[in-house]
Amino acid sequence: MSLLEIKDLHISIGDKPIVKGVTLTIKQGEVHAIMGPNGTGKSTLAKAIAGHPDYIITDGEVLLDSRSVLAMQADERARAGMFLAFQYPSEIPGVSIANFLRAAVQSRMTEGEELDAAGYYKRLYAKMDMLKIDRKFTARSVNEGFSGGEKKRCEILQMAILEPKFALMDETDSGLDIDALRIVADGVNTMRGPGLGVLLITHYQRLLDYIVPDYVHVMWDGRLVKSGDKSLALELEAKGYDWVKKELAAATV
């Protein structure tokens, strides 16, 4: 079983500290949700773990199976089994989804190893069926001219093909209507199991109705200030983030 350990992580963008000491351990098979208002560092945390060059780790550690990933490039981390489902996936004009995913699959093979094209397409189509994606979809350029829902489904399709050990899902619910949300959630739930650890980042409780987390953490001003099980999400929904704010204020007095 794999482990993703985040230890007292501090992250800055430029000179500005955004994440100020986050500690969290995710085991394969677990789903953790991080909730919190905008601007508290949730997305920064996900991107920094994935290795975005603009996010500077000023302190702390990220360990994948006891091995630090901080010196690794984003692509090495990806090949080691970390997947980031983007909040705003980039468009890649002229590159079809099928070709993009094939390149991604090939990047995981050892030198000299040949991709079994027939097997690849078979697997791709099976995953597309699971996510209720039209076969014609793979001929389109990655994310180019996609609706919000198509972009998110494309992210989930990539995740399904690449079979990561850990998925960091950054506001996967944003921009989705309820039908699209359901399809995306169904996809994640199908992949859920002992081989996948998930860090779900979300602003709203809504997503957690569909992907029920094992643990819920509340992020505030760059820190995880409260942790609990799925009931914490419901409590947050009922009381709002002001409740956390007040609790925090009371604690610091």
């Binding site: 290795g51 090949r79 995981r108 690449l162």
Partner: peptide, 11 residues
């Protein structure tokens, strides 16, 4: 765009 592709495993 480059980060996006790198995140999928491409150098």
């Amino acid at each position: 765009m480059i980060f996006y592709m790198q995140q999928r495993g491409l150098t």
